[in-house]
Write a protein that binds this DNA or RNA. Structure first.
Length: 489
DNA sequence: CGTGTTTGACCTGCGC
DNA sequence: GCGCAGGTCAAACACG
């Protein structure tokens, strides 16, 4: 609470409220203008968003409360003027003090409203993801009656068992479930965006259906088939990487993980461990855990996919974070101004080709950097040909954190440039800029905060088993810096 | 004995 | 076609 003051003080100065308030008390019945200005500050500082829909709602809902405050204030100011004419300075001080308190309360109210909105959005998004997932699974089951095995897993496992059936299913899906595909694609895989004549935009990365494919995994057949496959397993494309500072083998995120592999990644002496979620059989979610080569105290956890089962609160927080971040990653460009709309038209394939990275990954990756504060939210999307139009915040970008050579600085010169101009920004400005870039950020942020605050003490996560659960020792708080980081907001 | 980890082999995609 | 690297599988192993 006290930490809010430093940010509220400039708020007060910029508003120059005493003058305005005196003007109001002189008889201007329409007080709405000042509250609106205050909200304008809020929205301007944050560059809220283009349509101003949310800010309008906030303004409208906020006006009533502000008017009440102003009325109360005007009366008090009037009294002070009439009774303390000999001490205008003292009167001014009282006036300022009262006004300060009023605005402080208003500010708190705004924050509360914002928190509620964020929370609601977060919850709704989680529900949406689950609903879409259930819908997809339900449709697949309906189409694959011959597959007696009905498990909650995504279609990945089904493809392993019935490759041909999977093809049939996907074709049926693409043909008869356009709506479903459309929703899914928008939410989870923007490569599903139908761009007539641009098959290249559907370039798929590692086949989603090959998660457990082994020898039976089906290589790419053709572009159209890839579209269908992407539509049926839409939860794997975007990856969300979370950087944390932790000595533990991996962060506790409320889920149970089983390690299924470990590889030495090029350019990083630390091995990369591969985990898959074991909370539900067939859960498509996987994660990679690797320590940063530069700073081994930094743990890089990359999540992939969405859970196909209910999650405990702690796990839900992380899941919401990744889901929101993934959604933001996929939809972010369209939500922002100038040039942002370019992104959906940037096929990964073409992007990759333009950079000719040896191990370029087709996955869009968003990094939530919890090691350096909020000004470290990176969108590790395959760089667009013209990075000048890159609209998203790239604070604290660390190219090689993921061990992806494609993110080497020399291949992301534009991103580095953006990083440089954002460097001077304060944390608050960074947050507002991020919010301005995409409202989804708030969901990811809120979920990340929840995860950071809620996960460490719960000692949940894979702790069911000593091996997997790791290390979430009660005495060793997870993500200490993360907590510090977010608390500064 | 069940569960999870380790680790070498294998598969796949991509660049040359 | 070859080599490299990422990702995955699965047998062997460890542990409670």
């Amino acid at each position: 609470m006290e930490m809010e003051h430093p940010r509220e003080l400039p708020f007060l100065r910029s508003g120059d409220f005493p003058n305005k308030n005196s003007g109001e008390s002189d008889g201007d019945p329409d007080h709405s203008c000042d509250p609106v200005k205050e909200m304008d500050f809020f929205s301007n500082a944050n560059q809220w968003h283009d349509d101003h829909q949310l800010s309008k709602n906030l303004s409208s809902s906020f006006e009533s409360g502000v008017n009440t405050g102003l009325n109360l204030l005007s009366s008090s100011s009037g009294v002070s003027k009439t009774t303390n004419e000999e001490k205008p300075e003292a009167d001014e001080m009282i006036h300022l003090k009262i006004e300060f308190e009023r605005l402080h309360q208003e500010n708190r109210r705004l924050r509360t409203m914002l928190d509620q909105i964020v929370k609601s959005y977060n919850e709704l998004q989680g529900q949406l993801l689950m609903a879409v997932q259930n819908l997809t699974l339900g449709n697949q089951r309906g189409k694959t009656q011959k597959n007696a095995v009905v498990d909650p897993r995504s279609s990945a496992a089904l493809d392993v068992n019935e490759p041909s059936a999977s093809d049939d299913r996907t074709q049926d899906l693409s043909a008869s479930q356009a709506n479903t595909v459309e929703v899914v694609s928008k939410e989870h895989n923007h490569r599903m965006i139908q761009i007539p004549g641009k098959h290249v935009s559907v370039e798929d990365g590692p086949d989603q259906t090959s998660q457990s494919g082994g020898p039976t995994r089906c290589p790419k057949l053709d572009q159209s088939n890839k579209e269908e496959q992407a539509s049926e397993v839409p939860f794997r494309k975007p990856r969300v990487s979370i950087r944390t500072r932790s000595e533990a083998p991996f962060i506790s995120d409320g889920c149970q993980w089983r390690k299924y592999g470990q590889k030495m990644a090029k350019g990083n002496p630390c091995p990369r461990a591969y985990y898959r979620c074991t909370m539900s059989a067939g859960c498509p979610v996987r994660k990679q855990v690797q320590r940063c080569a530069e700073d081994k105290s930094i743990l890089i956890t990359t999540y992939e996919g969405n859970h196909s089962h209910p999650l405990p609160p702690a796990a839900m927080a992380v899941a919401n974070t990744t889901s929101a971040a993934a959604a933001m990653l996929l939809s972010g460009p369209t939500a922002s101004k100038d040039g942002l709309s370019h992104f959906p038209s940037f096929p990964y394939a073409s992007t990759m080709a333009s950079f000719s990275s040896p191990s370029a990954s087709p996955f869009p990756i968003i990094t939530l950097d919890l090691t350096q504060g909020l000004n470290a939210v990176s969108f590790l999307r395959p760089p667009p040909p013209s990075a000048a139009t890159f609209p998203l915040p790239l604070h604290g970008y660390h190219p090689q954190l993921l061990g992806h050579p494609m993110y080497a600085p020399h291949k992301l010169s534009a991103l580095s440039t953006m990083q440089s101009w954002q460097r001077p920004a304060s944390m608050f400005e960074s947050v507002t800029a991020a919010i301005a870039s995409d409202p989804n950020f708030t969901a990811a942020l809120a979920a990340a905060i929840s995860a950071v605050i809620g996960a460490p003490t719960s000692n949940n996560g894979g702790n069911k088993s000593s091996s997997n659960g790791v290390p979430n020792l009660p005495g060793s708080p997870q993500l200490p810096q993360s907590c510090t980081t977010f608390s500064t907001n």
